[in-house]
Amino acid sequence: MTTLRTPGPTVGVVGGGQLGRMLAEAAAPLGVEVVMLDPTPDCPAAPVARDQIVADFDDEAGIRELAARADVLTFEIELADQDVLERVSEDSGTPVHPKPSTLKTIHDKLVQKRELEDAGVPVPPFRAVEDADDIRGAIGDYGAPVMLKARTGGYDGRGNVPVESKADAEDALESVAGPAMVESFVDFEREVSVIAVKGEDEIATFPIGENIHEDEILRETVVPARSSEAVTERAHAVASDVLEVMDGRGVYGIELFETREGDVLLNEIAPRPHNSGHWTIEGAQSSQFEQHARAVLGWPLGSTELRSPTILTNLLGDVDEERRAELSDIDRILETSAAHLHWYGKRQVRPLRKMGHITVSGETEDADVEALLAAARDLEERVTFRT
């Protein structure tokens, strides 16, 4: 094994949002420098990264400059152009992790589902959509409602439209720009996720988290999930199977449905650190961001062991229109010993925009999850962006 030293190498990251910011924060103690590429000058990650290249996510000249300054490239946003990354990697010799081929698979939800189904990963019934008749046919086969999804570009529930009846098919299809697919609607007990890590020759999974959404946006993650031991074991098994399909090192956010019958079905995959894994910063022995830095560099992975039960609650914009971002009444968070505030450095707040998060961790391994959840909700409700 190669002897590792610090100060270490440089990681080039396409994207400089909150994920890039927290990745740079986690890489710094390891002696790893991070250079970002992002089109927004002084992006959220800029204050904690070594440097920023101001360029679009598909700007080949900018990505070539990034590759020239880095030992490995990665991305924190799926808008990274997979073809450009592949070309630049081949020409420069700078590896990309996860691989651009994985980004291609993830980029199109229909391609993603087909490849995973072919690999034996359990997924809800689905089909491609060319016209409204395909939606009506799916309702006839799967029952109503069904979930219509944009194949590309959707996140935080954007591009996902429930279709309640055949009469709604035309309007639903018009609301989804571009190619679409349709899935049967899963009557789930809870939504869960596994943050999984693919290293050089090892894999690791964090404890399963339970995700609470409202308006298709993640509001809270409860760890450990309030699931049975059998469901937990099955979720980890499915996550391991997913990693077999993915090509390249790094962290993968694997979103799952726990059905009322106790089955586990794959929802979607993010080939990067994921919002539902932010709890790991305080709640696990090593965070998902540290793990991503280790993995893309080919370094040994850290421990994913749970320190203590932990709650994540997102701080979303509670405003009616865009305005300067300023979070008020944070005193209670700072005064609570088990609470931690994370601010993402975004200058403008918009309705329901993710601006930061709070974690609340237990003091012991058997801390009461329900009490922690109540405490986290109380803290979140006390802060506001309204003036």
Rank of each mutant, 00 (worst) to 15 (best):
R50C: 01
T310G: 10
G8W: 05
F75G: 01
V369Q: 08
E90G: 15
D56P: 01
I281M: 13
V129M: 02
V197G: 09
V197W: 05
F385R: 10
V32N: 03
S240G: 15
E189G: 09
P47D: 03
N160S: 11
V129R: 00
E335A: 15
D378S: 14
R158T: 03
Q112V: 02
V222A: 04
M181A: 10
R21N: 04
V194C: 11
E25A: 07
Y252M: 14
E214Q: 12
L103K: 13
D134L: 06
L315I: 15
E191G: 05
R377E: 14
R386E: 14
P7M: 04
R136H: 12
I135Y: 04
Y344T: 01
E25P: 00
V121H: 04
L110A: 12
D83V: 00
S193N: 08
E117A: 15
D201M: 07
V319A: 10
A172Q: 11
A196T: 10
A371V: 14
T280P: 05
T384S: 15
A325H: 13
R347C: 00
A374H: 11
D58I: 00
S286W: 00
I217C: 10
V242W: 11
Q52P: 02
I333T: 11
D58L: 00
V383D: 08
V197I: 13
S165T: 08
A67I: 00
E183A: 01
T336S: 14
G137E: 15
S240F: 04
L306D: 04
Y344P: 01
V96N: 08
V161L: 03
A375F: 06
R347M: 02
R307H: 07
A46D: 08
Q291E: 04
V251R: 11
I333Q: 13
A144G: 04
V192D: 02
A375I: 02
M181R: 12
E174F: 09
V245E: 08
F257M: 11
K109E: 04
A204I: 01
E363F: 07
E86R: 11
R87G: 01
P145Q: 08
Q288S: 08
V88R: 11
G178Q: 12
E33N: 12
V369A: 11
M355D: 04
H97F: 13
L315G: 03
E76V: 09
R249G: 15
R50S: 12
D378A: 14
S240W: 02
V96F: 07
E117H: 12
D329T: 09
G140E: 15
D368L: 13
A284R: 14
E202Q: 15
P29T: 05
P162T: 10
P98S: 12
V54L: 05
